[in-house]
Design a protein around this nucleic acid. Structure first.
Lengths: 152, 152
DNA sequence: CCTCTTATTGACAATGATTTTCATTTCCGC
DNA sequence: GCGGAAATGAAAATCATTGTCAATAAGAGG
């Protein structure tokens, strides 16, 4: 299941080309529902195209983030995580365990949050003359495993 | 204006000692309203106590974050930023320009957001058996300077 | 105020994610 | 198919953050 052809146009629109490595990265992102790091993605890509290098994966992810097609997250473990904006998963926010690093997606209460955010976005973008393209929400704390437990 | 004495107790409560370097870091964090990086803080500390090393600044910030006295942020520029939880500034959220990295604090619409978050926090912590201690909200986009402009 | 235990420190080395460099290869409009 | 620009890969470079370890200092108890 190669990535849909409309990507081709997306790239052309910003003066970029569609290439095998880029397809490969998009395919991996499309197929997963997890928060993959650049290296994770590299490993997956590598299974199918061993010639593709980690550098290219980084460059592709950077480009996709610039294009607004990919979210780049930081969950505090020293590596960035990437997620397709138009992925299989619906829009969601994150619960991050500051002890073990576990990340839980939730989308249960999103609707009200998003409703409020739309208002806030509008007001903020006017007040600060700011063009808002995305938002990130994280709740930080301790997951059930780490709750009463020892640190780290 | 040295940092208030109640910090002393805070440290003792977790088996830690109050030291000159820790005071110095806290003093810098108290005095600023910006989002300082570890190195920024190191430079400030260095003006008063040239003997204090960067390593110690990192360790202190880490400790303060563990204690929940300091927020640690990532605005996507590859370095962490630190902010006192009980600082001079009231609770706020962030607008981050993905082009130039500028960060704008806002607290105008916080009240409604926080009200909603309190509900969401309660529901989430029950559903996922998660002990929530903090939240982070960022709006991403382009600031007025970068709006129509060239990339990077 | 002195002592002793233990947390803390600082200099330096090490790590590890991300970037840069540059010669080579690939895309794609013509 | 051709050519020039865009993209790639390998290796080196960067740079924030962390680990090591011997030397130092905090502070509880005497």
């Amino acid at each position: 299941m190669p990535c849909p052809p409309w990507w081709h146009g997306k790239f052309r629109d910003c003066g970029c080309r569609m290439t095998i490595p880029r397809q490969a990265v998009i395919d991996v992102l499309t197929a997963t529902s997890e928060h993959l790091s650049a290296e994770d993605i590299y490993f997956e890509v590598h299974k199918v195209y061993p010639a593709i290098g980690l550098t290219t994966v980084y460059r592709t992810l950077d480009l996709l983030a610039q294009m607004g097609m990919v979210f780049k997250f930081d969950f505090g473990d020293g590596r960035s995580r990437y997620e397709l904006v138009e992925g299989t998963k619906k829009h969601h926010h994150h619960l991050v365990c500051t002890n073990c690093g576990r990340v839980i997606d939730y989308s249960d209460f999103i609707e009200e949050e998003v409703k409020l955010f739309n208002q806030v976005e509008k007001a903020l973008s006017q007040k600060h003359n700011f063009e808002i393209t995305a938002h990130q929400v994280q709740f930080l704390g301790r997951c059930n495993n780490c709750k009463g437990g020892n640190n780290r």
